[in-house]
């Protein structure tokens, strides 16, 4: 680290610069809807017999609310985004519909499906 690497902030700017703005920012989170739902390839990869994510799907079927949640995200095309936050933004209505919380019994299975879709069904599902 050499002297002068950083810009030397003038004393006046540092000390008397503009007041810190603490005004909250509101960002409209669009609930992304893929519109056409989930592609057939993606559905097959997740739910097809012997397919990579079938076991995770079977676990979901056995848990209360999980089948409804999964159907909801399929219809909204929420397996398309790559990142979790984007998937959450898409699936928020589904989350609200079953009152999904971190203690919901279906959550582990839902997370397992999410992981599997991003890892083993990446090529078939992720389009963004």
């Amino acid at each position: 680290m050499t002297l002068g690497r950083h810009l030397l902030l003038p004393l006046a700017v540092l000390v008397f610069g503009a007041c810190v703005d603490t005004t909250p920012i509101h960002v409209e989170e669009t609930h992304k809807d893929a519109g056409a739902g989930t592609s057939a390839e993606c559905r097959e990869c997740i739910m097809g017999e012997g397919q990579p994510c079938r076991s995770a799907y079977d676990q979901c079927l056995a848990l209360p609310d999980c089948p409804e949640f999964h159907q909801c995200v399929l219809e909204r095309g929420c397996y398309s985004p790559a990142a979790l936050e984007d998937r959450l933004a898409c699936g928020q209505p589904c989350i609200d519909s079953i009152h999904l919380t971190s203690s919901h019994p279906a959550l582990p299975a839902i997370l397992a499906l999410n992981d599997c879709s991003q890892r083993d069904c990446r090529a078939q599902c992720i389009t963004e």
């Binding site: 959450l88 919380t101 971190s102 203690s103």
Partner: peptide, 19 residues
């Protein structure tokens, strides 16, 4: 704890992805 988190999430005071 998970239960405490869940309680706050169900009240909308924490997002679902909060860990």
């Amino acid at each position: 704890t998970g239960a405490e988190r869940g309680e706050l999430q169900s009240r909308g005071e924490l997002p679902i992805n909060a860990v």
